[in-house]
């Protein structure tokens, strides 16, 4: 007989038994020990049909193919750049993935990106040894000039972006700031100095209250009070906001 030993959406710790019997399937954050499915990390249990997985609440960024990240150039070599990804592993950006311009052999690569520059890039390949290749060919992938970078908990990135980008586009509209959220927990923003500070405050608020329901409404009220303007919900979500949320991609695939 198969049965679930914990409630769906409850918080579990490593080593906690989640289900018994062979009818359930272990997915991310769980493993099977004989006929029992056991949690292997701290997080929230998600049971979808027969599949049991854990949504982590803490932890460093785990690089995945297709993620749009904000990286920092840490080294320049002959053939490309080394990029810090805010994880345990740096990424490589090679010349051919960086620009479509023609670059002479032996040219000084710092004229494109120099050490300490921030870039928006997309992970297009990752090996078992976690060697990461990033590309800058794609819509919205570019070097970041000016503005400020803040760091957030990577596990809360989906909440900051919101369903189909609803949350982030609301913050953008209310403050008039440009914002880019990287899946790796770095966030870039630029705008009027006062509004920049408001964005930082808002993002921290979303991060702290990520678990609350009705958060979008709450943030809307907060922003209206701070800016003194009424926020009209946007009818059509802009494409670039939507593309950012990894969870939305998963949803659409199903």
């Amino acid at each position: 007989m198969s049965e679930l030993l914990v409630k769906n959406k409850s918080i579990v710790v490593p080593g906690e038994e989640l289900a018994s019997g062979m009818d359930f399937l272990p997915s991310f954050g769980t493993y099977r020990d004989k006929d029992i499915i056991v949690a292997s990390r701290l997080g929230m249990v998600n049971v979808e049909g027969k599949v049991i997985k854990i949504t982590p609440l803490s932890g460093k960024y785990n690089p995945r193919r297709g993620d749009m990240i904000i990286g920092k150039i840490v080294d320049v070599s002959y053939s490309g750049w080394r990029v810090d990804t805010n994880s345990a592993y740096p990424a490589m950006l090679s010349i051919k993935d960086a620009t479509s311009e023609f670059i002479n052999r032996g040219a000084d690569l710092t004229q494109f990106f120099d050490v300490d520059d921030y870039i928006v890039a997309s992970i297009f390949n990752i090996t078992s040894q976690k060697l990461i290749d990033v590309t800058m060919k794609g819509p919205g992938l570019r070097k970041l000039v000016g503005g400020r970078i803040i760091q957030i908990n990577t596990n809360k990135v989906p909440r900051i972006i919101g369903k189909q980008g609803s949350m982030i586009s609301m913050v953008k509209d209310a403050t008039g700031c440009k914002i880019i959220v990287g899946q790796n927990g770095l966030l870039w923003l630029t705008g009027e100095p006062k509004m920049e500070l408001l964005v930082v405050e808002t993002i921290k608020k979303i991060e702290d209250e990520a678990h609350m329901s009705g958060l979008t409404e709450k943030i809307k009220n907060f922003l209206e009070k701070k800016t003194g303007k009424k926020i009209e919900p946007r009818e059509e979500v802009r494409n670039d906001d939507m593309r950012m949320n990894r969870n939305d991609e998963v949803r659409r695939e199903r």
Binding site: V13, P14, G15, G29, Y31, V38, S40, R41, L42, G43, P56, L57, S58, G59, K60, N155
Partner: peptide, 11 residues
């Protein structure tokens, strides 16, 4: 370790 989200078999 659990709080840091490190994957672990057990406590």
């Amino acid at each position: 370790l659990a709080d840091a989200g490190i994957p672990m078999k057990d406590m």
